[in-house]
Amino acid sequence: MSFKRFADPACQRGLTFVYRLQHPAAVEVFAQKIGALAQRSQQTWGERSVDIWIVPRRFECQFGVRNLEIRFMHRFSATARQREADQQRFELALSEALR
């Protein structure tokens, strides 16, 4: 596996995870794998460009928050079962994007 997952200690509810990558992910491959349900957008943080995918009321992931770092956030409304399934789906798509 070419990423490491950490629970974000700043998140008060354990809903946020940080993924550290060994090399950059192929963003377009990820976009294809995560599917059409996810709404894609982009933000500019100073010099940094952050790619964001949101599956409404389930999760949000932000690529490029730091170098080789992704932030993954479950939504409040998602059930525990949904969260587990969504995170697996995200990791699968990420793995594909890292091949």
Binding site: Q12, L15, Q43, I54, P56, R57, M73, R75, F76, S77
Partner: peptide, 18 residues
């Protein structure tokens, strides 16, 4: 530019706080 408005749940989770 960070878009600090409510998400589709009507919440603004940012900087480790709500």
């Amino acid at each position: 530019g960070l878009g600090l408005t409510g998400n589709e749940e009507g919440l603004i989770p940012r900087f480790g706080v709500m």
